[in-house]
Nucleic acid binder design. Structure first.
Lengths: 155, 155
DNA sequence: ACATAAATGTAGCATTAGCTACACTCACGA
DNA sequence: TCGTGAGTGTAGCTAATGCTACATTTATGT
């Protein structure tokens, strides 16, 4: 059976538990925690780039949430030093926020390209990447990049 | 700009907003919601298969959470008709729970195999798959399966 | 048989993300 | 100038996931 081959014990050492799993699950949970922040930062960066500014209502609309929800999340971004804003003005990113946005954006493209490269329809690739990207470790991203480079990024 | 390539189109239609995004983000959020349930169900199935029963404490340990947290989640599983349990006894899966476990397990393997096939180190593949698997749509899974079949499922 | 340790359960609190309802501002037109 | 409506902000509620602390029950060893 799958999860813990170490329980099959016949010979060898015998470690009673498998904290390895705990670490993995914990990591996945942590990733999910920052996922929301990342989505907001990326979107805000896009809005600023395209419209010159990012307004709470617009962010809410794009993310498919109510505006108070967006406002609350932006408050969290500010708390974490990723964004700034003043009452009735737009939302702006700090240097840290911009850097995060760039990283997130690059990662998103990489994941989408990867999915497309292995035959996932563009629509599904975009959609699924939105959720998966937040869980791709450095090692995985590096592997993706190498894979894409090797096969010339062709479909 | 990046996030919405659909803004690029010089000719064609030009839709002012992009509710498409909202749908995508919403989907990712929903997926994340069931992710926890799936993790629990999969783990419980494993424990039953290996130990003959699944105890709350063991589940908590494996998932890296406190036991009350595990208990609370199991309560949710019961509410959703995926598991059953009686005070001071083990946790069991309903038919629905077992079916879900099977699907989750298959999906997990598929994602891991895929990552490995593309050159991700086994360790990272296992770890990242834990988070990514919950966001892989049917279309994506199908594409993964096809890709693996084509290249002979070799490591 | 009974005391005690380990496992399980319960209570209460915090945080995050969502929502609706309501209050306030600002910009624009009459 | 003064409304009014769209955009923002705030309050207060829900649900999920976590936690610690405490209560209970089971099981175990003497």
């Amino acid at each position: 059976m799958p999860a813990s081959p170490s329980h099959a014990p016949a010979a060898t050492i015998e470690m009673p538990e498998e904290p390895t799993h705990a670490l993995r699950f914990g990591k996945a949970r942590t990733a999910q925690a920052s996922a929301v922040l990342e989505d907001y930062v990326e979107l805000i960066a896009d809005l600023i780039a395209v419209h010159g500014e990012a307004r709470a209502t617009e962010v809410a609309k794009r993310l498919g949430v109510s505006h108070p929800t967006a406002v609350k999340s932006v408050a969290r971004l500010k708390r974490e030093g990723l964004a700034t804003s003043r009452p009735y003005r737009g939302i702006f990113l700090t240097d840290a926020g911009r850097q995060l946005a760039d990283r997130v954006r690059a990662r998103h493209r990489l994941v989408v390209d990867m999915l497309v490269a292995v035959g996932v329809p563009a629509e599904a690739a975009e959609s699924d990447a939105e959720g998966m990207e937040h869980h791709a470790s450095e090692a995985t991203l590096k592997a993706f990049a190498r894979f894409l480079a090797d096969r010339g990024t062709k479909t």
